[in-house]
Design a protein around this nucleic acid. Structure first.
Lengths: 340, 340
DNA sequence: CAGGCTTTGAGGTACGTACCTAAAAGTCTG
DNA sequence: CAGACTTTTAGGTACGTACCTCAAAGCCTG
């Protein structure tokens, strides 16, 4: 049987109350008594029963996901996964809500963050580009006792787990390597389509992509990024313009998470001699495109894993616990038709 | 606040004791009373606090992983993940042990399973080929009240979650597609190396692999499988023999989970004109081989996910709860150097 | 309507921890 | 060594559920 606080008290030769004070960092315990208790913890291998503790505290966790208001299927999938996660975590008294923000308006995001109170949320996961305003607002949140982590959009931090998502440079490199290998004996240009290159993740993916192509595939030339600004008409226009000036397109790399609109345009634009197409994220649309051979590969991250990982990390933060890093590492997945 | 049993009792107009009888299927409740309570559950959206329930029950879960005694780095990684999982699940009063079996001796496995008692384990995850003896032993276990699932080695069941692992046919197909695309403009033969083709997983991988190559890549010819029987010397011998009779090897596909020995032999055997090499599973060795370009791609399944999923499924079985299928789906991952 | 049965109620204890109070014991200061 | 202070003890209640007992109420049968 696992030792309990009672066993600890006996082993340390103190009362339950003292054990409790040590365990919860309450004041009024002499240092040598603290030591005695800690030694007993070591000796018995005491592990606090977090579940009983939370029950006693009547504690529940409320987390908030700040997601961009705009978006398409990838965003919708995320919301669905958050609802799903609520089922799993309900047993642990954890609930997550979604709040919508204007991704491109740092002031609005900062305001939303600023008006959050500890009663409303124990932690937030923010999917928005890093800006000075947002960074400041996050710092103020943490001062209030609300933990904040970056979600998907952000940057791999070394060490601290402040970010849940993939290494976008590596994701771009993965796309680049596949593109290169799939086009080994072809020559031509590669179209790169992004929503906006202002977003750090798109930028990093592009850098990783270029690095591989430039280093190992001299037969391929990566064209300047086309920016769609999320607008369907603009997307159609710029892609068609690009095709006119550049007849020999061997590959297309769609950088952004929302690939539907650019994919629709691209698949219509190429009637014969389909180029190799690589996009990001698994959505109903991209999945269908992969099945019907309109797309050759997808570079994805598992939205369910992302959501659950963010929740686990926020919770561990709140409990001042360590996390198991290997479980929280978000993998860059490669999807082809066969392993869908 | 979440409704409690107390709220249920009030809503249904019965006592706590009756609510308890209904919730735990205890006898002595009239049918219309059961109905009243169930309606109250519906109306209030009552969710049983599993955590408090387990605390009250003093219940803890003991699970057992039956792993083959032989094996190399993949097996070692699994054991490590099981220890890791124990940390995570300790809070939920779950502990998993490892038991070693002779994979190839169905009688011994059946004996081990047969001698298990409910006091020793609440559930077992078995990594062993399906044989009539093992199947029978599993059935008897379930009669005893010990749940049993197949782990990694086994077959994707439709519907019921009796198996934790990947669809090996699809995994082989994934390997086949990558091999085909990487060798688009080459001609030659493909060496297939397995520990034994008696194992169902190797067989299925091979079938999936052949299906893709034969259908879409007439430039490639898949050779008969070489079986190593896990023996290093034999491996070296049969591979060298094969190379003598077959000078034009364009690709090598290593089917088995333990790829180290065949990989060592293969990388030494090809001095110039390295073939495309695809193997399974991420281990320290295969990871290094990928980094050093000795291997072109790995088809993997996440051992940590496998272990945690098996534990979650066994636990849900014990509690007679449903699982969240999307979390338990084990993905076929594709690893190249860039997304390691 | 008595006797036996089934169903329900009321209350308690327990799980492991948190958090509270009042009082006892220990330590320091002048 | 008295008084003030700090540290510790002892005991209680609570969280939400499980499981137990005993008594009360309801029902059926002859």
């Amino acid at each position: 049987m696992r030792p309990t606080t009672k066993d600890l008290a006996i082993e340390a030769g103190v009362s339950l109350a003292t054990v409790d004070r040590v365990l919860n960092n309450r004041p009024g315990v002499r240092e040598d008594t603290v030591l005695k208790v800690n030694q007993a913890i070591q000796k018995l291998g005491f592990i606090r029963n977090v579940v009983a503790a939370n029950l006693a505290r009547g504690k529940s966790y409320r987390f908030l996901f700040l997601l961009p208001r705009t978006g398409d299927q990838f965003r919708a999938g995320l919301v669905e996964r958050i609802h799903e996660a609520n089922q799993i975590f309900a047993a642990e008294m954890i609930h997550a809500d979604v709040m919508h923000i204007h991704e491109s308006d740092p002031h609005q995001i900062a305001n939303a963050l600023g008006s959050l109170e500890l009663e409303q949320a124990d932690g937030v996961a923010i999917m928005a580009p890093e800006s000075p305003q947002v960074r400041d607002a996050k710092a103020r949140l943490v001062e209030k006792g609300i933990d904040a982590i970056s979600f998907i959009a952000g940057q791999m931090a070394s060490g601290r787990h402040d970010f849940v998502g993939i290494d976008n440079h590596a994701a771009g490199a993965t796309a680049g390597r596949l593109m290169g290998r799939f086009l080994k004996h072809s020559e031509g240009a590669i179209l790169v389509i992004a929503e906006t290159m202002l977003a750090r993740d798109s930028l990093e993916r592009r850098l990783g992509f270029d690095e591989i192509i430039n280093a190992d595939y001299p037969n391929l030339a990566v064209l300047p990024s086309l920016e769609t600004y999320g607008d369907a008409e603009r997307t159609a226009r710029i892609i068609h313009n690009s095709l006119l000036s550049q007849p020999n397109i061997a590959g297309v790399y769609i950088v952004s998470s929302e690939a539907r609109v650019p994919l629709e345009v691209v698949t219509k634009a190429f009637t014969k001699e389909k180029p190799v197409i690589i996009a990001h994220e698994r959505t109903p649309f991209t999945e269908a495109a992969l099945r019907s051979h309109h797309v050759d590969a997808l570079i994805t991250q598992d939205p369910g894993h992302l959501v659950r990982s963010a929740i686990r990390i926020l919770r561990a933060r709140k409990d001042r616990r360590e996390i198991l890093a290997s479980q929280e590492k978000i993998r860059i997945e490669v999807l082809i038709k066969e392993n869908l």
